[in-house]
Design a protein around this nucleic acid. Structure first.
Lengths: 168, 168
DNA sequence: GCCCGATGATTAACATGTTAAGGGTTTCAG
DNA sequence: CTGAAACCCTTAACATGTTAATCATCGGGC
């Protein structure tokens, strides 16, 4: 039996641990992003767009885990910086399609090697075996909690947790 | 091995996984907090204060992982709601000491059982073995990344990540 | 005692998270 | 065809995260 069965001392709360772990990871990446004037979210958007030609807002939000409301504020800024371009869909005027500009792709190309280097150092510090275990466990948690057995009331309201969408 | 040299598929990025896992967990707790008009952070503050008689701002921030700047906005609201009380230290006029009021303790007592029940259901859905593994791995990651290999002097702190800036 | 750097907290400015409401399109039943 | 519903995105309002600047206080050296 571990301390988990006693009164949890609050510092060991799962959300807090996940937050601290994420912060510990992001502290490795953030300096290089801020040096380029990018926030975490902006970098997620750029990474997501770099993998494809273009994306609708909803798909982009699903891929980089950002609300459409947040994207509505972030994308105009990225467009003003010339990193992305926005255009309307020809078949459905409601939809907005965004894509990286040449400048945006150059920014990605400039940052990607650093990002990979940081990730490599991080994998070295953590250990690849542990790292792989973490990935599996987190995946497992996300799936386990997204579908709590047979409790499927109309909780499908807002945030959807994209579990491995259409494999590319 | 895997494709460490290529850009990772991005959906499996560690920060994103940690974020999704945390969101999946918080979605279990959040409805009960919002029903009481509390945010995640406000609940963390109440939980932290409930474990002690009182705390200085800095210590409170360390315990519930909130910046002093954030606390400076949240604490006045909680005080206005009558959940906490604030007073100055007699020995050091710079310090502010906060504590739960009776109303604040009652709110904690009202929410704690629900919180424990949700956690129990969550532990059941995840499985206690996996849950314990996650705790250990996250602890490990936090420690591993906080001290990148060759630890810089000072290791007095136990598991806290006290510093976030790299220096100007 | 006095200056001055260090410290604890607050404030401001900007960026995002979250929810609700709004506006323009599309879709579909009738 | 038409009007209501559904849909996609945007905007607004509020709360927090983050950084830098500010203010008041404390501490020590002189």
């Amino acid at each position: 039996m571990t301390s988990a069965s006693r009164m949890r001392p609050f510092e060991r709360s799962l959300p807090m641990q996940l937050m601290l772990a994420r912060e510990a990871v992001m502290q490795r990446f953030r300096p290089h992003l801020t040096a380029r004037g990018l926030t975490d979210q902006q970098w997620r958007i750029i990474r997501a767009l770099n993998e494809v030609d273009d994306l609708e807002i909803a798909d982009l939000g699903a891929r980089c885990c950002l609300h459409a409301a947040s994207l509505s504020r972030i994308l105009p800024k990225l467009a003003a910086d010339g990193l992305i371009s926005r255009r309307g869909s020809k078949t459905d005027q409601r939809r907005v399609i965004v894509s990286l500009t040449a400048k945006g792709r150059r920014l990605f190309e400039a940052l990607a090697p650093q990002s990979e280097a940081i990730y490599a150092a991080l994998a070295r510090d953590i250990g690849s075996a542990k790292l792989e275990k973490v990935y599996q466990l987190l995946d497992d948690i996300i799936v386990s909690l997204a579908r709590p057995a047979r409790a499927r009331r109309n909780a499908a309201a807002h945030i959807r947790i994209p579990v491995r969408k259409t494999g590319p």
